[in-house]
Amino acid sequence: MGRKYGAILLKDLQLEIRSKETWVAMVAFAFMVALVFGIAVNPVRVRLAPVFPGVLWVAYLFAGMLGVGRGFEQEARDDALTGLLVAPGDRLAIFLAKLTVAFVFMFTMELLVLPFMVVLLGEPMPGGILPLLAATLALGTVGFVGVGTLFAAMAANTRAGSVLLPVLLVPFSVPVLILATEATAGILGHVAPAVDPWPWLHALMAYDVVFLGLPLVLYEFIWEV
């Protein structure tokens, strides 16, 4: 179990270092969302700060859909997933490893993109909130990545999976989008009336528990070749 988990994790990181496919695609995408949004919405007329959390999460979630799908395209290309399934050890390790990788990539992307977003959208980011903000990013990402990994495994085995994946994932992103955006707005603290981020964070945690738990129960059904 531990060995299998570690080996797959290491392999995915190595793969990413070699190909750079996933994170380049994700970062570029998120960056483009910020850029296009900044241009499309006239920043002179509209104050961008109140919508900043929303734009941030839209960029993150769409970039995340891109990234989470990549992880399984690589496994499906030469049927490497079958190789992993046959290899000794619990299959849960495969799912957990893919989940971890998806989380790490997405979270890293979020941290990388954050400064650009702050600068481009003129967010007057107050200092000292970074730890809580990072925690929010992590919670939102966990909630997204659980179902995302499950569906990415399915989409890799379907026609036009890269089109299908966002369609399947959008409804599942809605709670994350709402809860994480509100929490972020509360933390950044320049919306009136002021929002208390904690209820939203708690709700986000509850969502994470449910949507990490369900894939763990159901992933076995996806694995069968």
Binding site: K11, Q14, S19, E21, D78, D79, A80, T82, G83
Partner: peptide, 13 residues
């Protein structure tokens, strides 16, 4: 040991 139709290898590695 299992050898299937496809290589099970990763193209980028």
């Amino acid at each position: 040991g299992y050898l299937g139709h496809r290589s099970f290898l990763y193209g980028a590695l």
